[in-house]
Write a protein that binds this DNA or RNA. Structure first.
Length: 259
DNA sequence: ATGACGGTGTGGCACCGA
């Protein structure tokens, strides 16, 4: 069994103790992090190595920053989207060795986009096009591939607490969902939806207005698996428990099991 | 229509996230 997880930690400096606690109870083979909000030189390699993880890191000051933690050595690490000039540290890819042979991991902190029609929204769509192009070539090189992270997109109306009220707002627009579908069209499957799931399953809740307590959330953290892995996927769950911690991240981990 | 909460960097707040 190989377990791979994703978690937007919203500052690794603040959340490191929670990450280490979580790994103790959920000793996944790989954990992909987003929103490190720290530079490479501040990354806690030693603390994570002490609990058995190698790390590949692409950090940035204040914003963004992504990393892959793995029990086995990570090879062929690449940063950002090939062929897409980006000032922001949003993607890190690496190959992990597993019982299934090599598995390519593409870990992304997708652009938020702020508001449809804004410059940031235009950047989000261009970024998604760039990622799509990169994924196409990654899939040609690596049949067994996982694309995961904070997508900042709800895949459909099941992924939001208020489908009608939030229709065509950020994370909910048709054009964002079309870009999500375009990634799936490359041969990727949303692992979470391969299985029956509780209604109103979310991976993010606003800090404000008791968002978590009222389950006013979104499912925007996703794990997509390639065709070659799909038949081996035996489960995919959201672990809400870290959202109950003191000083939690606003996101919570998602885990996929590959038999 | 706005802000609400939390993180960062810097500064007595502004900016950003989703």
């Amino acid at each position: 069994m190989t377990k791979i997880a994703t978690w937007n930690v919203n500052s690794l400096s603040v959340r490191l103790p929670q990450v280490i606690d979580w790994l103790a109870t959920h000793p996944v083979d790989a954990l992909c992090l987003q929103e490190l909000k720290l530079t490479d030189d501040k990354f806690p390699h030693q603390a994570l190595s002490d609990v058995g993880y190698h790390s590949a890191v692409f950090g940035q000051k204040t914003y963004n920053g992504v990393a892959i933690l793995s029990r086995t050595v990570l090879n062929d690490v690449s940063k950002n989207i090939t062929g897409f000039a980006d000032e922001q540290s949003r993607v890190i890819s690496a190959t992990m060795t597993s019982e299934h042979g090599n598995v390519r991991i593409v870990n992304g902190y997708f652009v938020n986009g702020q508001e449809p029609g804004s410059e940031k929204f235009a950047y989000k769509l261009k970024w998604l096009d760039g990622l799509n192009a990169m994924l196409k070539s990654e899939l040609q090189a690596h049949a067994k591939l996982v694309l995961l992270g904070d997508f900042n997109i709800t895949a459909d109306d099941r992924d939001t607490y208020d489908p009608e009220g939030l229709r065509e707002t950020i994370h909910h627009t048709t054009v964002e969902r079309d870009h999500f579908k375009a990634l799936m069209a490359l041969g990727m499957t949303d692992a979470f939806r391969m299985f029956e799931q509780p209604e109103k399953s979310f991976s993010w809740w606003d800090y404000r207005e008791f968002g978590f307590r009222r389950n006013r959330g979104l499912r925007i953290d996703h794990i997509l698996v390639s065709e070659a892995l799909k038949s081996r996927v035996t489960g995919c769950v959201i672990d809400k428990t870290p959202r109950k911690n003191e000083r939690p991240s606003d996101h919570t981990p998602v885990i996929v099991d590959i038999a």
